[in-house]
């Protein structure tokens, strides 16, 4: 007998003569306490994210690249990983070229094996889009894909994320249902609620454990 058959057999034997319990999920419990007026969503997300060391900026579709340049220059960063295949990547590239920024724009356009060393040690910052945000917990939702792969938001020490205000949902449940996640998930879905941190020594919070030391969120208020 295989382990599988043994395990399933034992479990079935222990349940003999019983019926499965009914589904008692009550969506009110995970939505009602977490509803916000549309105009309060940004504030809620912002205050929660700031409480865990995230820098949040409210800006517009036409001025965010300028802000990115400013943020990078302030930190003396020399390169930024972004996706030229995406609309926001192109916008950034155009702005950087037009204003002759010194920051080098890098693209994640080859399998990680081809440039792991460089990605892990030389990339200083990255910029990605998001699928949306969650006001209840101060969370960004990322669905990495070919253009913005999984390690892009994890390995560089600074991660800048673009969040459209119109895509901030009240709570995770609402977002899942609205976008019908259950119908099919990508390889990896990420909920990100701040920069990497640990409290494993004496419960003292330290940021930049293994992932980004800094998370910067740009909320596009008109998008």
């Amino acid at each position: 007998m295989s382990a599988r058959a043994n395990i399933l057999g034992k479990l079935r034997n222990s349940l003999a003569g019983t019926t499965p319990r009914p589904d008692e999920f009550d969506e009110r419990l995970v939505t009602a306490p977490w509803r916000y007026a549309p105009e309060d969503r940004i504030d809620r997300l912002r205050s929660l994210m700031e409480a865990v060391h995230t820098e949040v900026h409210q800006c517009r579709s036409d001025n965010w690249p300028e802000l990115v340049a400013e943020l990078l220059n302030k930190r003396n960063l020399t390169n930024l990983l972004c996706a030229p295949s995406k609309e926001h990547g192109r916008a950034l590239q155009a702005y950087f070229e037009a204003t002759e920024q010194k920051v080098e724009l890098l693209a994640y356009d080859q399998p990680v094996e081809a440039w792991k060393e460089e990605l892990f040690w030389n990339v200083e910052a990255s910029l990605t889009g998001t699928l949306g945000g969650i006001a209840a917990t101060g969370t960004l939702v990322l669905w990495p894909d070919r253009n913005e792969p999984r390690l892009m938001s994890l390995v560089p020490p600074v991660h800048i994320a673009l969040l459209k205000a119109s895509e901030i949902h009240d709570n995770l449940y609402d977002m899942m249902v609205a976008q019908d996640w259950a119908a099919g998930l990508p390889t990896n879905v990420l909920l990100v609620s701040g920069p990497s941190k640990t409290a494993d020594i004496e419960q003292v919070l330290a940021y930049g454990a293994h992932g980004p030391r800094e998370l910067i969120v740009l909320v596009l208020e008109d998008a």
């Binding site: 929660l48 865990v52 209840a136 917990t137 101060g138 969370t139 998930l185 990508p186 390889t187 990896n188 879905v189 990420l190 909920l191 990100v192 609620s193 701040g194 920069p195 990497s196 941190k197 992932g211």
Partner: peptide
């Protein structure tokens, strides 16, 4: 309220 990362792998 939530951990820094919630990672769903499919």
């Amino acid at each position: 309220p939530i951990t820094t990362y919630v990672n769903l792998i499919s």
